[in-house]
Design a protein around this nucleic acid. Structure first.
Lengths: 150, 150
DNA sequence: ATTGATACTGATACTCAATATCAATATGAA
DNA sequence: TTCATATTGATATTGAGTATCAGTATCAAT
């Protein structure tokens, strides 16, 4: 029995006149399995273990496709690099990102969401999406900067 | 009479054993004058009109210096590129960014700030800074996508 | 004003993520 | 099975950002 996301993806591709390929399936699978913040390079490297012929360009192309289709979204790290996460059956959420170990903690807050809409309305701004990231140190890394380690 | 920011900058440099140079002054000036979201490339191109010898590396170095000193901060655009804005006598604020015309509207909301602290505490996360960007369409560009124009 | 230690600059070369190109291939409707 | 065409992977290329380093500007001490 096929899982829901694959079926939704297949239907999307069909509607767009696009094709369902092994590579696209592999990459979607990866995102569905990944706990968090998978970078394109990382995805490429990991998937190559199973499919050594998988090209870099295909990974980038597919991530862009998934993003445009609304099935995945970018997470930006503090150093400017970024990763992806899938959006299947995941409610909207924002991120707290540890500047030491890069752990990503998800949070969501209905009051903040509501305030955002109020603020937008006040400026006659039509919000489409947002990004709310809090940078700092996670429980494990503690309030003090990491010592020694680069 | 010298303006405040230049004096503060000079004192910072002195305290760090760094030197006040023509280039650093030019770049700080640029940020102080710019309305918003000046990209490194843009700053370089514009300043070259007056100072054709100004190097790319110097612009990047100086922006990094200003950022580390706390005199400037990055704004990230939706396409992943970024710009800078100075922070002299500007209270903390976040941004609404128009996806059509790239206009940047500043906002701030004490309640949101407070909620962020609450959420962080709940996760034993020590917040250092944050970034809260709402993407959408500004009053001028209206709620519908721009037509024709790339 | 001159000197001199050293921070700074600009040119160049380089890195590396991301993109464009294109011949070969896989997909899926007929 | 056929075949138009979307897709792929290899390759070349781009472009933002960085490292290097010889020459230069700054500024404290004289």
């Amino acid at each position: 029995m096929k899982s829901q996301p694959h079926e939704v993806f297949r239907q999307y591709l069909e509607a767009q006149g696009l094709k369902l390929t092994k590579q696209r399936t592999e990459i979607l699978d990866y995102l569905l399995r990944a706990r968090d913040h998978a970078t394109p390079e990382r995805i490429h490297a990991d998937l190559r273990a199973k499919d050594p012929m998988l090209g870099r360009a295909t990974v980038f192309r597919t991530l862009l496709l998934l993003e445009k289709a609304g099935f995945a979204s970018k997470i930006l790290f503090s150093d400017g690099s970024h990763g992806y996460e899938h959006k299947f059956a995941r409610p909207h959420h924002d991120h707290m990102i540890c500047v030491d170990c890069r752990e990503v903690i998800e949070f969501s807050n209905a009051t903040i969401e509501r305030l955002q809409d109020q603020i937008s309305r006040r400026f006659q701004f039509t919000p489409l999406w947002h990004r709310h990231e809090i940078f700092g140190r996670c429980r494990k890394c503690g309030p003090k900067p990491a010592q020694g380690v680069k």
